[in-house]
Computed example of a mutant assay.
Amino acid sequence: CDTPFFPDTLLHRLFQALSTRDAEIVFPVSGGHSHQAFLLCRTHLKDSLKKYLDSGQHQVLGWVQSHRHVAVSFPDGDDFFNVNTPEELARAEAHHAEMSR
């Protein structure tokens, strides 16, 4: 529910970037913000991630920046719209109604 309108092409585009770019991690960027919660990474990084988390670190961006990473642009700023307040919920409901027409 936090990001209800992420694009249908998200997985395909991230996988394509991971497959074709010199990167270990790829994540979307939209509206001037990066969205590491939607990242894809190479499986060989699992030990690195475990070590990072075990050290008490929890900021995804810090771990991402310690590896070769690529940001994939998604031009529609509403693709990763967050719903965290009643006002944002109203905006999301209006956006959903518009999409359903």
Rank of each mutant, 00 (worst) to 15 (best):
residue 1 C to P: 14
residue 1 C to E: 10
residue 2 D to R: 15
residue 3 T to Q: 12
residue 3 T to D: 09
residue 5 F to K: 03
residue 5 F to A: 07
residue 6 F to V: 15
residue 6 F to R: 10
residue 7 P to E: 02
residue 7 P to L: 00
residue 7 P to M: 01
residue 10 L to H: 10
residue 11 L to C: 08
residue 12 H to A: 14
residue 13 R to I: 06
residue 13 R to Q: 09
residue 13 R to E: 05
residue 14 L to R: 05
residue 14 L to K: 05
residue 16 Q to C: 12
residue 16 Q to F: 07
residue 17 A to M: 01
residue 18 L to K: 01
residue 19 S to D: 06
residue 19 S to V: 07
residue 19 S to F: 07
residue 20 T to I: 02
residue 20 T to L: 03
residue 21 R to K: 09
residue 22 D to N: 14
residue 22 D to E: 13
residue 23 A to W: 06
residue 23 A to V: 07
residue 23 A to Q: 01
residue 24 E to T: 09
residue 24 E to P: 05
residue 25 I to Q: 00
residue 25 I to K: 00
residue 26 V to N: 03
residue 26 V to F: 00
residue 27 F to H: 02
residue 28 P to L: 02
residue 29 V to S: 13
residue 30 S to G: 12
residue 30 S to C: 14
residue 30 S to M: 09
residue 30 S to W: 11
residue 31 G to H: 08
residue 31 G to C: 09
residue 31 G to A: 10
residue 32 G to K: 03
residue 34 S to P: 11
residue 35 H to L: 02
residue 35 H to C: 01
residue 35 H to S: 02
residue 36 Q to T: 11
residue 36 Q to Y: 13
residue 37 A to M: 10
residue 38 F to M: 09
residue 38 F to W: 11
residue 38 F to V: 10
residue 39 L to Y: 00
residue 40 L to Q: 04
residue 40 L to T: 05
residue 43 T to Y: 12
residue 43 T to E: 15
residue 44 H to M: 06
residue 47 D to L: 10
residue 48 S to M: 08
residue 48 S to N: 14
residue 49 L to D: 01
residue 50 K to Q: 12
residue 51 K to P: 01
residue 52 Y to D: 06
residue 54 D to N: 12
residue 54 D to G: 09
residue 55 S to L: 02
residue 55 S to H: 00
residue 56 G to V: 03
residue 57 Q to K: 09
residue 57 Q to G: 05
residue 58 H to A: 08
residue 58 H to V: 06
residue 58 H to D: 07
residue 58 H to L: 05
residue 60 V to H: 05
residue 61 L to C: 12
residue 61 L to Y: 11
residue 64 V to C: 04
residue 66 S to C: 02
residue 67 H to L: 07
residue 67 H to Q: 13
residue 67 H to K: 10
residue 68 R to G: 07
residue 68 R to K: 15
residue 68 R to N: 09
residue 68 R to A: 11
residue 69 H to L: 03
residue 70 V to F: 00
residue 71 A to I: 03
residue 72 V to S: 03
residue 72 V to Q: 03
residue 73 S to P: 15
residue 74 F to I: 01
residue 75 P to H: 01
residue 76 D to R: 15
residue 76 D to F: 06
residue 77 G to A: 15
residue 77 G to I: 07
residue 78 D to V: 08
residue 78 D to K: 05
residue 78 D to C: 10
residue 78 D to L: 14
residue 78 D to S: 13
residue 78 D to Q: 10
residue 79 D to M: 09
residue 79 D to N: 13
residue 80 F to G: 02
residue 80 F to R: 07
residue 80 F to I: 01
residue 80 F to T: 03
residue 81 F to E: 08
residue 82 N to H: 13
residue 83 V to S: 04
residue 84 N to G: 15
residue 84 N to H: 12
residue 85 T to E: 00
residue 85 T to M: 01
residue 85 T to V: 02
residue 86 P to A: 06
residue 86 P to Q: 08
residue 87 E to R: 13
residue 89 L to W: 06
residue 89 L to G: 08
residue 92 A to G: 15
residue 92 A to M: 13
residue 93 E to A: 12
residue 94 A to W: 07
residue 94 A to N: 12
residue 95 H to A: 12
residue 95 H to M: 15
residue 96 H to L: 15
residue 96 H to N: 12
residue 97 A to E: 07
residue 98 E to I: 08
residue 99 M to L: 15
residue 101 R to F: 08
residue 101 R to L: 14
